[in-house]
Computed example of a mutant assay.
Amino acid sequence: KVSILFKWNAAQNTVNYTLEVLLNNQQAVSSTVGGLEATVSLDRGKTYTWTVTSKNEFGTTESDTYSFTTPGLAEVNYAPYAAEISTDFNTLTQLLTISWIGTDEDNDLLTYDVTITENESEIIEESDITDNSISGIEYNSGTEYYIKVISKDSTGSFSVSEITANSPE
């Protein structure tokens, strides 16, 4: 087990807060406190989600949902993190370079499926590539490009990243 300290910001007119921690959509912890933090004991090497609900005499307000993985040895395979995508429009050559950074909690080797769409027409679709960029893509000025990168590990786990980028005029 590992002790995890949760902290959150104050909500106006709150009487108390309920911290709810889930593991695989099942409640792992539910704790009602009067302050802005709570410490709970959780299993090591597992991915949890959590929310805080503020309560007063008029009702409740729930926070966004956050996720984290407790430190320790993984008991199962982790899905890759969503890749960070960047674009470089070279206005001299009219060529676009798309690059991304993919990572994985348990350091699995990653492959990528990449789709690039221009004005709702698919212009590039690459599967199972190991590089972290595609370059030499001719682009049109003032055009919207939709880029999707699927990061995959060898066990079939994956994550999806999507951005929209507008080429310079």
Rank of each mutant, 00 (worst) to 15 (best):
N90A: 09
I116R: 03
Y81C: 04
V15C: 08
I124H: 01
E84I: 14
E105A: 14
Q94T: 14
S3T: 11
N90Y: 13
S154P: 08
G59P: 11
D106M: 05
L5R: 09
V21M: 08
G136A: 01
G136P: 03
I134H: 02
I137M: 00
S31W: 08
T115I: 08
V15M: 10
K46L: 14
K55L: 12
T53C: 02
L95E: 10
S167F: 04
T14H: 02
L19S: 02
Y146V: 12
I150T: 06
S161F: 00
L36T: 07
T164M: 05
S99I: 00
S63I: 04
E62H: 08
S41P: 06
T111N: 07
S154R: 08
N166M: 12
T69Q: 05
A83R: 03
A11Y: 00
D153Y: 04
V149F: 01
T53M: 05
Y146D: 14
D128H: 10
N16Y: 12
G45N: 06
E162I: 01
S99N: 15
L109D: 14
D88R: 15
S157K: 10
N140R: 13
L36A: 07
T117Q: 09
L96S: 02
I163E: 05
P71D: 12
T87G: 04
V52R: 03
A165Y: 03
S159T: 09
K1F: 12
S30Y: 13
K1N: 14
S167V: 07
T155W: 07
D64F: 07
E75D: 12
T97N: 09
G156H: 04
A74Y: 04
F89Q: 06
G35K: 10
E122I: 15
T18F: 04
R44M: 11
Y146S: 09
S157N: 10
N25H: 15
N24P: 10
N25K: 15
E75G: 15
T51K: 07
Y48S: 01
Y81S: 08
Y112L: 01
I4K: 07
V52S: 01
T69V: 11
A79G: 06
I129D: 06
E37F: 08
L42R: 01
T111A: 05
T60H: 09
Q12R: 03
E57D: 12
D108K: 08
G156E: 03
N25D: 15
G34Y: 12
V114T: 02
T103M: 08
S54Y: 01
N16C: 11
L92D: 13
V21H: 02
V160H: 07
